[in-house]
Design a protein around this nucleic acid. Sequence first.
DNA 1: TTATAAGTTGATAACGTTGTCAATTTCGGT
DNA 2: ACCGAAATTGACAACGTTATCAACTTATAA
Lengths: 330, 330
Amino acid sequence: MREVAALAGVSLKTVSRVINAEPAVSETVRSRVVGAIQRLDYRHNHAASSLRRSDRKSSTIGVLLEDVANPFSSALHREIEDVALQRGVLVLAGSSDEDQAREQQLIAAFTSRRVDGLIIVPASHDHSYLLSERRAGTSMVFVDRPPAFLDADSILTDNQAGVRQGIAHLIAHNHRRIGYLGDLMTITTAAERCQGYEQELASAGIALDPQLVRLNVHGIDKADAATVELLGLREPPTALFTSQNLLTIGASRALHRLDLHHRTALVGFDDVLLADLLDPGITVIAQDPSTMGRKAAEQLFRRIDGDQSPSVHLVVPTRLITRGSGEIRQ
Amino acid sequence: MREVAALAGVSLKTVSRVINAEPAVSETVRSRVVGAIQRLDYRHNHAASSLRRSDRKSSTIGVLLEDVANPFSSALHREIEDVALQRGVLVLAGSSDEDQAREQQLIAAFTSRRVDGLIIVPASHDHSYLLSERRAGTSMVFVDRPPAFLDADSILTDNQAGVRQGIAHLIAHNHRRIGYLGDLMTITTAAERCQGYEQELASAGIALDPQLVRLNVHGIDKADAATVELLGLREPPTALFTSQNLLTIGASRALHRLDLHHRTALVGFDDVLLADLLDPGITVIAQDPSTMGRKAAEQLFRRIDGDQSPSVHLVVPTRLITRGSGEIRQ
DNA sequence: TTATAAGTTGATAACGTTGTCAATTTCGGT
DNA sequence: ACCGAAATTGACAACGTTATCAACTTATAA
């Protein structure tokens, strides 16, 4: 910048003014500075700038996801990116892999880079480590899972209601032995979904058979194996509810291999690409990650812009999409 | 940091030394400083630090993808993140949406934040705008598509060979009328794949019927519509080759709806989740985005660490995965 | 005991930028 | 030609940190 100023024959401050498009600069000088910038191909240092500026904004936000490669996470991510880019804000993304240590490591890395805000799909269950960060003025919005020991905005899915709708759907098709595949119980949503399962069975007056419930099943392969186990029981379930997208895929894979996909009903939580083309198509309780991402980003920027109102807790509804697998009658 | 120094009764520099784990600091003082840091919950300012440090590293890289929500892109992204995080490097991710302007906007935003390096899946065809950035010392690696008017490392898929293998596979199953769905011809890989199609037909002595070739088909819905058109021809194709993952999904959707999925052969480029469970399973030419991402990130960090050797151009092979749809005989 | 080396610590400047405020130039009205 | 106001420009300090180098303390050897 010093060189640009010298070449244009002006002061540092004037170059700064041109770069920041401040009004008080004559057209003559402006074009001279612009020329110098191009000749020297000067590159503005955003970090130095935000260090000195009074707003102290980095125009960067941090997004902590479960796994950037998971379809649900990446749909969230994309929507957040679009809202952010409209404001010239960049997105630092990271995957927690449901690991609390990795979550904290990533968040610490985000905050030491002075992100203006955080969008968090938390893996941990105590976010008091973020209190000082909040006090320091970093805005944050939780998505998919609520904050614990911390008051912050959240955008959640109505997990219990969603699962109950799915289970009710199976019950309406005469199923009484409904197997359940649950993700790691450390994941808040997994616990909530499991409760939904129990509640809906209870309200239908169906006794819960613990044999039919497999919890802490994580990832496609584990789901595949658990499904094989369930269907190998002396009294196997006539229907399955899989409570996460990868579990749905794993269960579906097992059902197909066992050639039971036309006999065992299946409803999954969270939609999956291509689910409509399978035979039968997979009936799902669809979440709406795009809406969640957009709402989360919009709320975050409202906070960044200074909104101090009490925490907002938004619940995004789910939607039952019937495609065949959930309509197999007992 | 000033406050920490005051509370611990030491100088700024000593606090800095503790934070950077420099050896020359006594255990007494160190623990006093650590205590002060915790009491004041001091947060290190990475931006200010890298501004002053001699290595001038931001420990951040920029990754430009086609769309963070596309499975191929997000698999790349995830692998890059893992390599980066091992080194304490964070990833700024962005989606170009095949839009040159958006690509340049994002890259400019990355570089003004002084990323240490860039991993680029380019949408544009002239990367000379990056020359000055290179000169300024930013490392860069191109993935999936080569740089143009710029000498830089690249990690590519052998598109032509992959497509030729797929087309040869269809020809081996007696197909002569093979429809082709190509993505936007502005995308380098789309053009290469199309050439592979033409070459393999030529080398098998099959005349190319322009009616069977639909180019510039982008996204699931367009692919669906194009497939319907192709199969509505007076002499429809007996097999289809779809040259991108979303196109494969769109075509598959159309085939199922038309109930032609057991009669019309289909081979797709790039693998798709659940493709194994369809009936028939979708035969694909699989790329290996994880390997590409890992190699790209490793090469980038080699450059960041000072490797000045001539540009490396790595080609990652494809793999034919037969699942049924490509083995339908004519 | 002293000289010397090794280990600690701190004062100051600097990184690239912008906020503050004062200085200078330009312009409209007399 | 001159005044005052408005527009333009610049000098300097500061943002939070680390590099440099000098000063101090302690340990070691003669």
